[in-house]
Each structure stands twice: as structure tokens, then as C-alpha cells.
Design a protein around this nucleic acid. Structure first.
Lengths: 225, 225
DNA sequence: CGGCTCCTTGAGGTTAATCAATCCTGGTGG
DNA sequence: CCACCAGGATTGATTAACCTCAAGGAGCCG
């Protein structure tokens, strides 16, 4: 069972059965219920994780009670990579639905990288991608809220396109608007008003968690500024 | 000469002479003048770099003309790691003073990692640290400007402490206030006013590019909120 | 029908960007 | 030695973005 989970992960796709076997040997499975915390910011980082099923939120808690969502992790993604090389976890993680995950202890995984440089190279590639994502996030937070929302929506449609192969412009939000607001670094009130603004301009249409892009060029213009 | 540069870099410190030799074999030296651009966002990423001397700025240009500084690179640091594993550079880089750097072509470096997993592990550690820094940056940008400035100052003093071994509370800004404003995601006017605010509260004292922490507890309080 | 949660709408206040001068400070040339 | 100039830094006045607080809907399940 966990062999299949490994095979399905982007990070490990294409590895040999022997390599996957090594990975399975050092991992074990873990269950999390909706809302359960996996680890907290500042705790010693003893492992990194592959999410087999479910959704997980990586976030920091600000002193004023707001939360800064760093990223959402979906099935097949890994997270807490940095814990392999830093003494403590840099953020909190919480299950957003019932989730199943594979845990890789730090020391065993580091040893495995020395044995199988191949795996190290994949992890590097993975982390490089994360660096790009986080740089983009930094840039994004300097833009006004409408631009951040537009970028998120464009990204989302882009992914769905890639998955379906169809350029359908109707997409579904994978998270609640409350979560989306946190992910964009704003509050639900402002998000709601920003959606309204785009709807009034006939740039998009929204119905609950479904939305449709009516004017792609206009949306891209909003995303730039 | 370049062997010494390699030895001085955190990323490569402690490697064997043989390993350093491999690194030297695939690298070559490069000079940049103050203000010169090394590469632009979106260009194909053909190499990653070690900065031997000087200072370099990694930044994105926003459509409205502002610039978002991702990080400042100092002598001994590496940058453009992600270009090893992504098709294009995710940001621009510009020399902030005359600089000398070592260039490692992507393909040669990847091959070296497979031969010397040790080096891969170090690079992983390096990138993990960067991920933590960037996560912190994301969190930071959700805080008000005074908190961002306070964090920057505390960080700076912390580093100097580590370097000097002394808990001296007088530090020197390594960059102009204009650059600092960009680094904090704000504008010079706001930065100036924020400095004033802290000075009036007797939290710090400022004289040009020198400043002194007068009330550490108060500064930490500002940094939290 | 209540009670719940999520989302939306409205009014008001705060933060920080913008625009426009003015003030330094170091370098230059008379 | 001093007037001058250019760039960065500061200050003031104004404006715009967005957060906060408070009050409604709208769906959902008991």
C-alpha cells in the first residue's frame, strides 16, 4: 500500500522498485483527523512527510491572532523538507480534512540520500521549485489584494487546464473563502468585496465556490498591478 | 585563488581538497561592476553562483516600477540555486558594488552531485535554510512596517553579536536606507518616519547608517506586532 | 423553527503610499 | 576656502487601500 503512495508522489515518480523499497523501509504511516495539528513552529524537526491523502495547511500564527498561510499541501506533495536540515520546524501544520501521511525520520533519510544520490537530486529539484513559489509569494504580498486574487485564480485555472487538457475557464475553489483570504494575506471581508469588484467589472462570474473567467485579458491586467 | 574562495564559502566549508578541486574544475570566475545586471527574471537558467567578493541584490520588478528585494547576497553566499533545477531564473540580480563571483554551469554541477552526494547534502541544507528565510519573509510582509523594521534590526544585531562574540547593541546598516526600504517592502518616506517613531520612543538611537538599541525589550515588543 | 457556520454588506478608522518641497552631505570646480 | 551641485534623506499634506467592528443574510442540520 505505501509503495503505491510513494510511486504516486511527484518527488519519487520514476524511481526504481529497489529505491522505493528503501524509502518504504524507513517510513511509517500516520493518520490525522480534520483540524488536528501535526507539529508546531519551533518544535525540534525530527522528520519530513509525504501526504498520501487529504489536505494540509502550513501556516504561521501572528501575534495578533491572524494566521499567515504559507502553503496548502495536497495529496502527493511532500512538506517539512526544511526540517531535514534545520533544528526546528519553521511553521505550524494542521490537517484541513482527514489525512493519511508517510513519515520519514530525518537521520534515516539523510543516510539514504548519501546512498542514493538520485533521491537527493530529486529532493533538490523539489526544494528549488518551492523556492520559486515562495519568491513569488513574497512578490505577491507587495501587490494590492485584487492582483493577488487575480493571480491565484489564474494559477488555479492553469492547473486545471493542465490536468484536464481542456482550456475550460470555469473552475472550483479547492478551499473555503475564509481559507483563501488567509492564503492571500487578507481578511474575508476584503476578499468578498474584491470578488464583487471583479464581478461588477464582468471580469469573472462567481457562484459559491465555482467561478468562471469571462475576460481573461482583463484578469491578467489586474494581476499585473 | 578560486580554491580559497571555495574554502571560504559556507556551502563548501570542510570539503576535502579533492572535492574542492572538482568544484574548481567546473567553475570559472566572473567580474561585475557596481550596478551591472547578471541575469534577468525569465532568462534560461544556465548556472548557479558563488559570490566571492562584493554584494548582490536579488529582486523582482513590479509593474508599477517598485522593486521587491528578495534578498541581499554577501561575500561567501551562493545564489541562483533554484536555477539548477528550474528552466528559468525566477528573479533579477544586480551588483550593488564591484563584485567577483564563481559560476557553476548547471549540467556540470548536477553531475558532480551524483558523484559526490556530500555536496548535494550541503546544497540541500543550504536550500532548506533559504526556505526558512523566505517563509519568515512571507510572515513578515503581513506585519506593519514598524514590526518589519524591528525584526530587521534585531536580526542585524544578532548577526553582529555572532560575528564579534560581543553583545554590542550598536550596529551599522550594511545598505542604504533606500535599499532597506525596498528590502522591507516599503518606501523611503515611510522608513524615515518609522525610524523617527522608534527614536522618539527612545527604543533606538540613529545617526546616519549607525544605530544603537536602547531598549531591547521594547524593540522585541514592536517586532511581535 | 432555532441554532450554527460561513459569507456578505455597511460605516468608520488606521496605516502607509503618493506627491511635493526642503534639507543635508559629500564631491567638484572656481 | 567657499560656492555650487547631485543624491539621498527627511518632512508635510493628501489620498487611497484595507482592516476593524458591527450587523445582516443564506444555507444546513438538529
Amino acid at each position: 500500500v505505501s509503495l503505491d503512495d510513494l510511486r504516486d508522489a511527484q518527488l519519487f515518480a520514476g524511481l526504481s522498485d529497489a529505491q522505493l523499497g528503501h524509502l518504504e523501509a524507513i517510513s511509517h504511516t500516520l493518520q490525522l483527523s480534520d483540524g488536528e495539528l501535526l507539529f508546531r513552529q519551533g518544535q525540534p524537526g525530527a522528520a519530513f512527510y509525504l501526504l498520501a491523502d487529504g489536505t494540509i495547511k502550513v501556516f504561521k500564527r501572528l501575534r495578533d491572532g491572524r494566521t499567515a498561510t504559507i502553503r496548502h499541501v495536497h495529496a502527493g506533495d511532500t512538506f517539512a523538507e526544511s526540517a531535514l536540515f534545520t533544528p526546528t520546524y519553521p511553521a505550524n501544520t494542521e490537517a484541513m480534512e482527514d489525512s493519511r501521511l508517510l513519515r520519514f525520520p530525518t537521520e534515516a533519510f539523510r543516510a539514504l540520500i548519501l546512498d542514493e544520490p538520485d533521491i537527493g537530486l530529486r529532493l533538490l529539484s523539489n526544494m528549488a521549485h518551492l523556492l520559486v513559489v515562495l519568491s513569488n509569494r513574497v512578490e505577491e504580498l507587495l501587490l494590492p489584494v485584487p492582483a493577488r486574487l487575480a493571480r491565484y485564480l489564474l494559477d488555479l485555472c492553469g492547473e486545471e487546464d493542465a490536468a484536464t487538457g481542456r482550456g475550460s475557464l470555469a473552475c472550483v475553489l479547492p478551499i473555503s473563502k475564509r481559507e483563501l483570504a488567509a492564503r492571500l494575506g487578507t481578511v474575508p471581508e476584503t476578499l468578498s468585496r474584491t470578488f464583487n469588484q471583479l464581478v461588477r467589472a464582468k471580469t469573472i462570474a462567481v457562484d459559491g465556490d465555482r467561478f468562471e473567467v469571462l475576460d481573461l485579458a482583463a484578469l491578467e491586467r489586474v494581476a499585473q498591478n
